[in-house]
Nucleic acid binder design. Structure first.
Lengths: 235, 235
DNA sequence: AATCTTTGCTTGTATATACAAGTCGTCTGT
DNA sequence: ACAGACGACTTGTATATACAAGCAAAGATT
């Protein structure tokens, strides 16, 4: 019934930190000291410390010891999900219109994002994602065809680019930027924006083991879309 | 010189997954099987699995076994940082103007966010964060005074609300939403926006052990600010 | 005095072992 | 035919131990 011992130790340490007994950058008792204090083996004490390090509460340094991490460095996180899953999870209808599917020469922005030299041929797709018939995202995607040669042969009405790319080139890394923008009139019409309505834009670059795979510009109507996230920092 | 053994096992498994030998939801060899295969103890094999579970690559279930997690569930993350640190890290001057510091009755939005009944008195502060003299964020913050009674006595020109709150009520949880909005003319003037320029708005709610502490509405000029993040999914 | 060595503490990796606890199929008794 | 007991296999927790590797300060050598 009792909580596992390493959780007791974790709680004890986080309490000390939260009540201020263990200040920022203060040295935490060593693994051996904790083992003695809690009458457990070093490996159990070690596990408590290890998990707190993973949570960003502590910092360890071989040979020196374990220390309280700086409080402000505990950055919180926001999850970025793909629009198709998001819509489906809301239990609403998701549909896609394929607006473009071509090869084109990379301009400087795309070339830099994909780590190619400007002018290299890349795959370009433009998709409009609809939720219950209403436009929710305009997806402009540029793909490195050297890494994903079959990209343009896909039918994206059946399988979204994100799903296809996850299969053929599993991601190892991603980078996102989020900004608020005003779009040109053609795009505004596509997204059925109201007058003066801004858009939330996500720039997403993804890498697989072999290199930079794709660069996407995801544009959402500001009035209909919110990016939402959640994170538990402690436990 | 050689990599530790548990990293070898991790790499072996991620390779199997990436090349498709281990499909989604497929059963991964048990800890004992891996220990036999790699001629190591069960604890070492277990560590490899544990770390892959923490990365979201695998899923474990006591009694059943370990399985490959669904690929799409690997949502990527975006870090949300506080503006003061961000500006200082760029090596630029950060300054704050305190525009308001009062008690007021919570309207419905604030009351819901803080888990209070509408009309409860809460602390309200409005700060304008400047980077090299240019407005970068308008921070409207509502604080549960029952949990942080000293809030309104602080001088926020010296210590930002975020820093103060981190000290007196260490966060255990945070929730964010991000949206693109058009603001009223008074706010537009404060942020020195161009005509029709949209804003990136972050809604941030934070909890400490004792309950919902604060609700903040952070408004950034769309032309001068981008939310940027990064995540390594693998290793 | 300056430099190298030793010693002791720390964390990091790895092993062998034990028992607890959850799941599932099988075997058994009714 | 059904229910329950049992056993096999899985992950979860905990211990005791060993050696490697990094760091720092005290001590020995130059």
């Amino acid at each position: 019934m009792a909580a596992p011992k390493f959780i007791e130790i974790k709680q004890h340490l986080t309490e000390l930190i939260e009540q201020g007994s263990l200040a920022e950058h203060a040295k935490v008792p060593s693994e051996n000291a904790l083992a003695a204090q809690f009458e457990c083996s070093r490996m159990t004490a070690r596990r408590a410390l290890t998990e707190l390090v993973e949570q960003g509460v502590l910092v360890r340094s071989q040979g020196q010891g374990t220390f309280v991490a700086s409080l402000k460095s505990q950055g919180s996180m926001l999850t970025i999900r793909n629009i198709a899953d998001e819509v489906k999870e809301r239990g609403r209808g998701h549909r896609v219109q394929v607006l473009a599917k071509t090869r084109l020469a990379a301009d400087t922005e795309v070339a830099i994002a994909l780590g190619l030299s400007p002018g290299t041929e890349v795959g370009h797709t433009a998709l409009l994602h609809l939720e219950e018939g209403l436009p929710m995202q305009l997806e402009h995607r540029y793909v490195n065809l050297a890494l994903v040669p079959g990209y343009l042969e896909q039918d994206f009405a059946l399988q979204t680019p994100h799903e296809y790319l996850s299969q053929v080139a599993p991601l190892t890394e991603a980078h996102h930027e989020v900004e608020a923008v005003v779009v040109d009139t053609a795009t505004a019409e596509l997204l059925q924006l109201g007058p003066g309505e801004p858009c939330l834009r996500i720039l997403r670059r993804t890498w697989s083991r072999s290199g930079a795979v794709s660069f996407a510009r995801l544009t959402h109507p500001g009035s209909r879309y919110r990016l939402g996230g959640h994170l538990v920092m402690d436990n």
